[in-house]
Amino acid sequence: MADVHDKDGRQKNMAAIRSKNSRPERFIRLQLATLGFHYVTNKKSLPGTPDIVIKKFKAIIFVNGCFWHGHNCHLFKVPQTNTKFWVSKIHSNTVRDKEVVAKLMAQGWRILVVWECSMKGANKLRKKDLLDRMEEWVLRGDNYSELSFRGLTREQFKPRL
């Protein structure tokens, strides 16, 4: 299927996508504030400039877009145009994500990746479930977890590079 935009239109659309302060990121920050957590955003002194840092709990939250970070869910689809470029781009993003997580964990940080599909789409979590799972993770102490439309998954982080 051909792209519905011309090259300039597509470039304009892609340039408008935020790398920080995105709508999902702002939503998660609002929910954390509602839960009473104090955090800082986009901490440049840490590897990967984490989206949200909760110092008191030595916790970092990344809010990842399913497309940009190659999440295996209903929101991710490899583009039909310029496919080779996109596959390479998304692969390099996932490799970088794993490197950043490994560095942060080596420094003693706990990591939660909140996927866009947990907040968007037909299978999104109910707001209460999303809040409960985030609060549970911050307070629990798991080293690495992911929050997606499937819920909170606790798993051993394996930096498969």
Rank of each mutant, 00 (worst) to 15 (best):
D3I: 10
K43C: 04
H74N: 08
C117E: 15
L32G: 04
F57L: 04
H5T: 10
D142C: 05
D129H: 04
D51G: 00
C66A: 04
I17C: 05
S145K: 04
I111H: 00
N93D: 11
L125I: 08
L75V: 00
S22G: 06
F37W: 11
K128L: 15
P47Y: 03
V138I: 12
D97K: 08
F157N: 00
V63L: 11
F57Q: 13
F57S: 12
V78N: 06
P47T: 06
Q107L: 14
N143E: 13
N93V: 10
I90M: 05
L46K: 03
R96D: 00
C117M: 08
A15K: 13
L125S: 14
A122Q: 13
F57W: 09
Q31S: 09
K58I: 02
R150L: 09
D132T: 05
D6F: 08
K89I: 08
R23W: 04
I111C: 00
S92H: 11
A15G: 13
V4K: 08
M119A: 15
K44T: 12
P47W: 01
V4Y: 10
T153Q: 11
R150I: 01
F67N: 05
P79N: 12
K127M: 15
P50R: 00
R126K: 15
H69F: 10
K128F: 06
A59F: 04
R126F: 07
G141Y: 12
R133V: 02
S145L: 05
K127W: 12
T83N: 08
Q156L: 08
D132Q: 13
S145V: 01
K103N: 06
N13F: 07
W137E: 09
S118C: 15
T94V: 14
E136M: 06
R96Y: 01
L152D: 07
E25K: 06
G151Y: 14
H5E: 11
K44N: 14
T49I: 02
E25G: 03
D142M: 09
I17D: 01
D6P: 13
D142A: 15
K7R: 13
E146Y: 07
D132E: 10
S22H: 08
P50A: 02
L104T: 02
R154H: 09
R110I: 11
V100L: 01
H38E: 14
W137N: 02
N64Y: 13
S148F: 03
A106Q: 15
K58D: 05
N21L: 02
R154E: 08
W115F: 10
A16L: 05
N42Q: 15
A122T: 11
H74T: 09
R110S: 06
G151K: 05
R110F: 05
L112S: 08
I28S: 15
H69S: 05
R10F: 03
K158I: 14
I17Q: 06
V87P: 09
A106T: 08
V4N: 09
K55N: 15
T94W: 00
E116P: 14
D129Y: 05
L30Y: 12
A15D: 12
W109C: 00
V63R: 13
Y144A: 03
V63P: 07
Y144E: 02
Y144C: 06
H5V: 06
L147Q: 14
